[in-house]
Design a protein around this nucleic acid. Structure first.
Length: 733
DNA sequence: CCTTTAGTCAGGGGTATCGT
DNA sequence: ACGATACCCCTGACTAAAGG
């Protein structure tokens, strides 16, 4: 609001202050000569790696998952062993395209699957875990910035990218002058570190040892202070910028905020967690720490000189100043006491992203300045305030929050909740929470994310954010389950019809999960209109004591059952195109198989989606229908993959007409395309062969349409189905 | 009944690709 | 060069089934 919405004046003021601080820092670095070599080349990137000396190895092994420095410029590092010296020597070389292909195959990685590999003997390896030892690593003292000589993990500079005086980019291994500059940076930092810490220009805060994400740097590197996530060069550069931009602010909150945000940007883009990424199509480069939402220490990383940090500076659009009463406050959402017409919330869910932990990475750089500029800031309370975890506490806090927001909203006010989650069941949970908070769902929009042009939707594409629009539940409506069911049924059907109307022909707009989410939403729209069902309040159901103990299965609440019913309706209602006539006479197991196939044919591979389908059809045994495979590799068994498996056996699916039909298809394929065996089998086994014939043929036609060009799994079976269908069609006894 | 093994899955690490 | 996103594969935590 105050920065982005501040308009041109604020922008210019921030820009001026920022570039002044940068220029001053750059002048100092230039004076020290830290980023230029004796030939006048400018450094663009410094590459560092961890090295380790296993007990029975007489040299330090530099670690990296790949020694390919730059695929685009075809530059790699090859390690040399000089007799009698326990440090290897990096050779940074440019190789030919053919050599590059070879290099990419073998990679020469010294760290694979958590094991250290001897670069000169691939058969010799040590697991990192065993090297760390049973007691783990020595923990660093606060003021330490580099490993001690006797630490397991050492760190070294192995490559520098230069820009020569003619503007050419060159990778070189460091020489003695480069190492001297590294030593100088360390010396300069050590001279300043105590003072800088005192003034809050570099972090002093400890890393919480017990966090989900924060424990990893401690465990795998021994880092205990946020400053340990930065090497001497990085701390020196950032400290310089901090000292320039945070001094003499004269209580200017805007400049203070901008300076802190800027430091955050520097920290993100230049830390020991900034990985070095090579690409075949463009020059390699260092990435930001929060490339992912975690804190994973890397074995090799990159540092940027200050001259390469200019692009990291914050900038913002000044063309749209925001002129409205605004207040930015940090506090517990349960204590909000401001009246608002529209509340827009973006809640966390369970343990998805540990914002409260990751945020400390930046707060460590803001230090005490944040309290100077924002006196009402609660820097230490966030960890406790963060609503997290699962189960009762989480639900309870969420209900309290949304009840409070609903209280501070007029009767015609509105709430908008953004929510992204791939598991619809979790999403339903959120619906219950909002319901219990006295809100009524009036609409739900799933915002589809872009999908690859022309391709089938593949993989975890359900990233769409769900927007729930809600009103206060004003009238007291009391309902009974048996009257709510038909209402839910109508609403779900209406919802699906409206989506189908949009979703025509070859390019579907909605995936299977979109329909399921929509079904949940429709069910919720009906349900949340009621205050009580069968005389029971929703919060009572939400916080019902769950049975504990071995083998206890939580009984579903009546509310969950209604929601499940909505999904069931959706499942029954979504009939694969071409199977409409056969559908009514199929059993749940048969419908599940065909629907799963339908879903699979659109590229779905996630087991969770198939499980959700099974739940929708009320089928317990899903696994017999699936062909093994790993997570996200689930597929429905083809007739040939079924073979004779469980044929006519105990399982619910095993004795259905569809199962026999699948076997007949398999028999046709096995008999080199002669449908006679399959036809005879069906005639023998199905009590009502003549009655079933028409719908069996329809199913066979549908199966025959399943072969796609890129998936030959179905090709033979689809052909078998086509032949068998032809035989059945012309069967006259 | 306890122990071992195999299966399951969410989430993360690493990488590729694309748009701007 | 940066940012966004998708994907493959791995890991750790967990759990169900099998084995003793």
């Amino acid at each position: 609001m105050n920065l982005v919405g501040g308009g041109r004046d604020v922008r210019n003021r921030v820009r001026a202050a920022q570039s002044a601080a940068f220029r001053a820092a750059e002048a100092q670095i230039e004076d020290w000569g830290l980023e230029q070599n004796e030939q006048g080349w400018r450094a663009e990137a410094f590459l560092y790696c961890v090295e380790v000396k296993p007990p029975d190895c007489d040299y330090y092994i530099p670690l990296a998952p790949s020694w390919l420095v730059d695929e685009y410029l075809r530059t790699v590092v090859i390690w040399r062993h000089d007799e009698g010296i326990d440090r290897l020597r990096p050779d940074v070389v440019e190789i030919s395209a053919a050599e590059l292909r070879e290099f990419k195959n073998t990679k020469g990685a010294t760290l694979v699957d958590g094991r250290v590999i001897d670069p000169f003997d691939p058969n010799r390896s040590w697991s990192v875990e065993s090297l760390r030892g049973p007691d783990g690593l020595r923990l660093w003292e606060t003021d330490e910035v580099v490993p001690r000589k006797d630490d397991l993990f050492q760190e070294r500079l192995y490559c520098i990218r230069w820009m020569d005086t003619e503007g050419n980019r060159l990778y070189r291994s460091p020489n003695s002058c480069d190492f001297e500059r590294e030593a100088k940076a360390l010396r300069l930092l050590n001279e300043r570190i105590a003072n800088w810490r005192m003034k809050g220009f570099i972090p002093s805060a400890p890393i919480p040892l017990d966090g989900d994400k924060t424990s990893e740097p401690v465990r795998t590197r021994g880092w205990t202070c946020w400053s340990h996530l930065f090497n001497p060069r990085q701390l020196l550069t950032h400290g310089l910028v901090a000292s320039q931009s945070l001094s003499n602010l004269h209580q200017d909150r805007v400049l203070a905020a901008a300076a802190m945000l800027n430091l955050g940007r520097l920290a993100d883009w230049n830390s020991r967690l900034s990985c070095w990424l090579s690409s075949p199509t463009q020059i390699a480069g260092g990435k930001n720490t929060f490339l992912n939402q975690a804190l994973n220490p890397l074995y090799n990383y990159s540092a940027r000189p200050l001259s390469m940090m200019a692009s990291a500076q914050i900038d913002f659009d000044s063309e749209r100043p925001i002129r409205a009463a605004s207040a930015v406050e940090i506090g517990d959402a349960r204590d909000v006491n401001r009246e608002c017409d529209l509340w827009i919330t973006d809640p966390p869910y369970a343990d998805a992203v540990q914002y409260h932990e990751l945020g400390d990475f930046f707060l460590a750089w803001y230090g005490k300045h944040i309290r100077g500029a924002f006196s009402d800031w609660l820097p230490d309370a966030r960890g406790q305030l963060a609503v997290r975890g699962e189960g009762e506490d989480f639900k309870k806090s969420m209900v309290e929050i949304y009840s409070n927001l609903a209280r501070h909203m007029p009767d015609d006010g509105m709430q908008l909740v953004m929510f992204t989650h791939q598991n619809p069941a979790v999403w339903a949970d959120l619906g219950m929470i909002l319901w219990a908070a006295g809100l009524r769902v009036t609409a739900a929009w799933t915002v589809a994310t872009e999908t690859p042009v022309g391709g089938i939707k593949k993989g975890n594409y359900v990233q769409g954010t769900v927007l729930l629009v809600m009103r206060k539940r004003v009238e007291e409506k009391h309902g009974f389950l048996d009257e709510v069911y038909p209402e839910v049924e109508d609403e779900v059907k209406r919802q699906i019809d409206s989506m189908r109307a949009l979703d025509d022909g070859a390019e579907p707009n909605f995936g299977d999960t979109d329909y399921q989410l929509a079904a949940y939403a429709a069910a919720l729209r009906v349900l949340t209109g009621y205050q009580t069902l069968d005389g029971q309040d929703v919060s009572h159901e939400l916080f019902r004591a769950k049975p504990t103990g071995r083998g206890a299965v939580a009984e579903k609440s009546r509310f969950e059952r209604v929601i499940d019913r909505g999904i069931q309706i959706a499942c029954d209602y979504l009939i694969p195109r071409g199977l409409e006539a056969a559908w009514p006479s199929l059993s749940a197991d048969e419908r599940l198989y065909l629907r799963a196939l339908d879903v699979e044919s659109r590229g779905e591979r996630r087991q969770g989606v198939f499980q959700e389908l099974a739940r929708g059809f009320g089928v317990r045994e899903l696994m017999p229908l699936l062909q093994g495979g790993r997570a996200n590799q689930s597929r429905v068994r083809t007739p040939s993959e079924f073979g004779r498996r469980d044929l006519g056996g105990g399982g619910a699916f095993a004795s259905t007409p569809l199962r026999h039909l699948l076997f007949a298809v398999h028999a046709t394929v096995a008999d080199e395309g002669k449908p006679e065996v399959g036809r005879n089998y069906l005639k023998e086994l199905l009590p009502d062969y003549w009655g079933d014939r028409t719908r069996l043929t329809a199913i066979l036609d549908w199966l025959a349409s399943l072969a796609h060009g890129d998936d030959d799994r179905w090709t033979a079976d689809a052909e078998g189905a086509r032949l068998l269908a032809g035989r059945l069609r012309t069967d006259h006894g």
